[in-house]
């Protein structure tokens, strides 16, 4: 029985808790902060930098099946997605579809 529960314990200890603790700290720190406060401007800038930092890391150090796609195709597809996003009046949908389609197409045509 303990052997069956082991993967779930791992999930809680290495997946849930280390990730969720930031959300709980967020609840704690958000108390009394005004939504237009100066501190919040800084906090948003930090969040944005970490967010695009995660993006760059996934593209450059790709996981799983994405690692089989050459780096220049991953970077080029991200550029295609950004261009489509700008072209179609800042449409998130257009950017995501164009970038992903470009990646799959380049992967199929040019190969690995």
């Amino acid at each position: 029985m303990t052997a069956d529960l082991w993967p779930y314990l791992i999930l809680v200890v290495v997946g849930f808790l280390p990730n969720e603790v930031w959300r709980w700290l967020g609840v704690f720190f958000s108390r009394g902060l005004d939504e237009t406060s100066e501190a919040l401007l800084w906090v948003r800038a930090v969040a944005t930098a970490i967010l695009t930092g995660v993006v760059a890391k996934i593209i450059v150090f790709a996981p799983g099946a994405l690692a089989g796609v050459p780096l220049w195709i991953r970077l080029g597809s991200a550029a295609v997605g950004m261009a489509a996003f700008a072209l179609f009046r800042q449409s998130v949908f257009a950017g995501v579809v164009a970038g992903t389609a470009a990646l799959i197409a380049a992967d199929l045509v040019i190969g690995r």
């Binding site: 280390p18 990730n19 969720e20 603790v21 930031w22 959300r23 700290l25 967020g26 609840v27 720190f29 958000s30 902060l33 919040l40 906090v43 948003r44 930090v46 969040a47 970490i50 967010l51 995660v54």
Partner: peptide
């Protein structure tokens, strides 16, 4: 997950 802290605070 660090990004979640400032996201929740915002």
């Amino acid at each position: 997950g660090v990004r979640l802290l400032p996201m929740v605070v915002a």
